[in-house]
Structures are given as structure tokens and as C-alpha cells.
């Protein structure tokens, strides 16, 4: 069972604001999904190596060289708030 306090903690980690109703709903939802996932405990995973990826590829690298992106204006236009060609954000420090 995921308590309402746990839901609030997870939401804070995930940077999602929730209202009381949502906190209640997520507490039930997440609990029932996690209960259902419990079935994985049956599987015998002794001596099994985890895989995160099916291709088995590792460390595809390229030269660390800057390339010009042609549509810079397209990116700047998407800034929620622009000042002198920069993206204006709230104070970070």
C-alpha cells in the first residue's frame, strides 16, 4: 500500500504538483499496479544477468566536435520568456 505521504514524496521527487484528490487517487492506483507487478517475484532469476537493451551495443562514440544547427531562431522562438536572445528563467541559485 502506497500511503498519501509516500505519494506526496514521490510527486515532490518527480516535480509534479498534485491536489488532494489526485493524491488520494494515485495512492489507490499506484498500490493496485504495484500489487499486480508482485507476480514477478515468482520468476527464478538466480544467476541471470540483467539486460537494459536488446541490441547489446556498447559505447557508440563520435568525435566531440561542435556542429552548427541551422534553425537557431526556431529554438529561440520556443523559449517561454525571451530576453536579449536568451531564455529567461527564474533564479536558480
Amino acid at each position: 500500500m502506497i500511503s498519501k505521504d509516500e505519494v506526496k514524496h514521490i510527486a515532490a521527487l518527480a516535480r509534479i504538483g498534485l491536489d488532494e484528490k489526485e493524491i488520494e487517487k494515485f495512492s489507490t492506483d499506484l498500490s493496485s499496479i504495484l500489487d499486480w507487478i508482485e507476480q514477478l517475484k515468482e520468476a527464478d532469476i538466480e544467476n541471470v544477468e540483467p539486460i537494459s537493451h536488446i541490441t547489446g551495443m556498447e559505447n557508440i562514440t563520435r568525435e566531440d566536435k561542435a556542429e552548427d544547427f541551422e534553425n537557431k531562431d526556431g529554438i529561440k522562438k520556443m523559449f517561454p520568456e525571451e530576453k536579449d536572445g536568451y531564455d529567461k528563467v527564474k533564479s536558480v541559485l
Partner: peptide, 8 residues
């Protein structure tokens, strides 16, 4: 655990 079962 899920990544291990994925391997299986």
C-alpha cells in the same frame, strides 16, 4: 528484477 526477467 525486471531487467533480469526481460533477459529470460
Amino acid at each position: 528484477r525486471a531487467q533480469k526477467v526481460r533477459a529470460l
